[in-house]
Design a binder for these strands. Structure first.
Length: 581
DNA sequence: GCCGTTTTCGGCCCGACTGTTTTCAGTCG
């Protein structure tokens, strides 16, 4: 049982305790313990022999220590089991539904003895939920919508979840006997925000026949739950916990490139590519590019060979959606996609002044370590009280601290800039929740929507448009604002918002936090087409979150963005002047 | 349940928003 599993079990316990109506502070301590376990750098299982070391972790006391030892020892937690027996496993899923919280779930359970997605959906459809106190037709409708969204998204996995699995499997597979090449393909490689499964290609001399070693290593990998299929060419299995399906395919080196191309997709891109091959008298499959007439293989060892033999420039995986990339590759007009190395600064991050985990100086040091030349500190404003957001007085103090710390940091890092900003909330009437005279003193003002808002598209559009009209607003942060895999995106008239941004000189953010799906491919592309500047930020709450920039880069590449489309590829002074022009 | 004392019990993140209310509970972040 690894740290992730332990943390998950404690979080589930907290969820169920919430339904049971337990003390909220007691519940919070379970979640805090889970957070601490996720943040721990040592496997907890290795500490269980000496519980004193467990107690050193923040938020882990005597009871949690006992829970951890129990989980590591038996793989189960008595309290967790009891709660599951008292309620029902389906309740954990119900709590994931947007609009359904512990109180409502508990009420439905007490009244109707219903505790699963199907049961609650049936009750809602039968109009039974509106009979409950404080519930009405609208609430019922909202729950049905939440269930529909949940159904649509379940079985999809966030990019960072897949990255964690890859981190686990890569050393196991690359070190397996006979493996000379290894690649993770599928929609993950295409840079999608969410993926349905993970495709792995391994090749080595004599594969697949000589690949027994890698199959054995795969089957013995950590977190393997069940084997779904096992043949000579392919092994499929399901992982414990989240149930992710992972497919491993074995191929000889001469087919590696063709297989990588084939299993990277997308389906539409491959269909188009195969028809192009056909027109050239060729046949393309996962083993190679073959001549129709005699079946001789012309290419297959590398993807570059395959594209080249088809008369195409190499097409980056992120572009492979059959959205004009094949035509562009044929006419040598593919974009020079932005890369991580182009980014010179990250201008959306939090510190301990609101809900971040590190100080201004620690964030600056982390950014400098990653080769950046500037950052901007953008803590939350007061509307996000839960994150201990700043009111005017605290913001002014924070501003002074940022200016002070910048000077101090420049002593060891000459020229490094620490800008002062804020992430304000766009309230329902379009106002920003911070006085203009304070905003005027800041280098960067990011407007975001945090509060729940599922009114009509017209209302949301008006809300954002009004905020864009505020002369102090520089950057529109996650207007789409949904937590990935959980919520419906806000509906609004994006073109009208872009009109307003263009008129007001407001830039758009790509928020690289793995939990946010903020500017989707289409939106980022529309910004590029309309010449609206984009800023790629991580929204870091911890120094290590700065590494998430890769997720934003993937989104940007999918939207065909080049370095000059993105403002934070500019040096510090130019960045600020372009942003505030 | 954890933590840190004002050492053995009290504090712990709270405001915006909606839908159902005639004053507020539930959800979300």
């Amino acid at each position: 049982m690894d740290n992730r599993d332990i943390a998950r079990r404690l979080r589930e316990t907290a969820d169920l305790m919430e339904v049971a109506g337990e003390d909220s502070f007691r519940i919070r301590s379970y979640r805090k313990a889970a957070d601490a376990i996720d943040a721990a750098t040592v496997p907890l299982a290795s500490l269980c022999d000496d519980p004193r070391r467990l107690l050193e972790l923040p938020g882990i006391g005597k009871t949690m220590c006992g829970h951890i030892v129990e989980l590591v020892g038996s793989g189960q937690l008595g309290l967790h089991q009891e709660l599951l027996a008292r309620f029902r496993p389906g309740m954990l899923e119900l709590l994931q539904v947007s609009g359904l919280g512990p109180k409502t779930v508990a009420l439905i359970w007490q009244t109707y003895n219903a505790g699963s997605l199907d049961e609650v959906e049936a009750l809602a459809k039968a109009g039974k939920l509106r009979e409950l106190p404080r519930m009405g037709a609208k609430a019922e409708e909202k729950i049905l919508r939440g269930i529909a969204v949940h159904r649509e998204l379940s079985g999809r996995y966030r990019r960072d979840q897949i990255a964690a699995v890859i981190e686990l499997l890569r050393p196991v597979l690359s070190g397996a006997p006979g493996v000379t090449q290894l690649a993770f393909a599928g929609s993950y490689r295409r840079g999608k925000d969410t993926v349905g499964d993970l495709d792995i290609i391994a090749s080595g001399p004599g594969f697949p026949q000589q690949g027994a070693g890698v199959v054995a290593a795969f089957l013995a990998a950590p977190r393997v739950d069940t084997v779904l299929a096992q043949g000579e060419n392919k092994v499929s299995l399901r992982l414990q916990g989240d149930g992710l399906q992972v497919d491993l395919r074995l191929l000889p080196p001469e087919s590696f490139g063709a297989a990588l191309q084939y299993f990277t997709g997308s389906k539409q891109h491959n269909i188009h590519l195969r028809s192009r091959a056909q027109q050239l008298g060729l046949k393309l499959n996962e083993y190679g590019l073959l001549r129709d007439s005699d079946g001789v293989m012309i290419a297959g060892a590398t993807e570059e060979d395959v594209y080249s033999a088809l008369g195409l420039d190499y097409i980056a995986a992120e572009l492979r959606e059959d959205a004009g990339e094949i035509e562009a590759a044929a006419s040598h007009s593919l974009p020079h996609l932005i890369t991580q190395a182009d980014i010179r600064g990250d201008v959306h991050m939090h510190t301990t002044a609101s809900d971040g985990r590190a100080s201004i100086l620690e964030m600056a040091a982390a950014a400098a370590d990653r080769g950046y030349q500037y950052i901007c500190i953008t803590d939350h404003s007061q509307a996000l009280a839960m994150a201990s957001g700043l009111d005017e007085r605290r913001m002014l103090e924070h501003l002074a601290a940022i200016r002070r710390d910048e000077k101090e940091f420049q002593a060891s890092h000459p020229g490094f800039r620490v800008f002062a900003g804020i992430e304000v909330d766009i309230l329902s009437d379009g106002r920003l929740d911070m006085a203009d005279e304070v905003l005027a003193q800041l280098d960067l003002v990011i407007g975001s929507i945090h509060s729940r808002f599922d009114q009509s598209s017209e209302d949301t559009t008006a809300r954002i448009l009004r905020a864009v009209g505020n002369p102090h607003l520089d950057l529109l942060g996650h207007p789409n604002g949904r937590l990935l895999l959980r919520r419906e995106p806000y509906q609004y008239d994006f073109e009208r918002i872009l009109d307003a941004c263009q008129a007001a000189g407001v830039a758009m953010e790509i928020n690289a936090s793995p939990e946010r799906l903020d500017l989707n491919d289409v939106q980022a592309r529309r910004c590029r087409e309309r010449g609206i500047p984009i800023v790629i930020n991580t929204d870091a709450h911890h120094p290590r979150h700065l590494d998430n920039i890769g997720y934003g880069i993937a989104t940007a590449r999918r939207a065909w963005l080049e370095a000059h489309d993105v403002l934070n590829t500019l040096p510090a002074e130019l960045f600020l002047s372009r942003l505030r022009q």
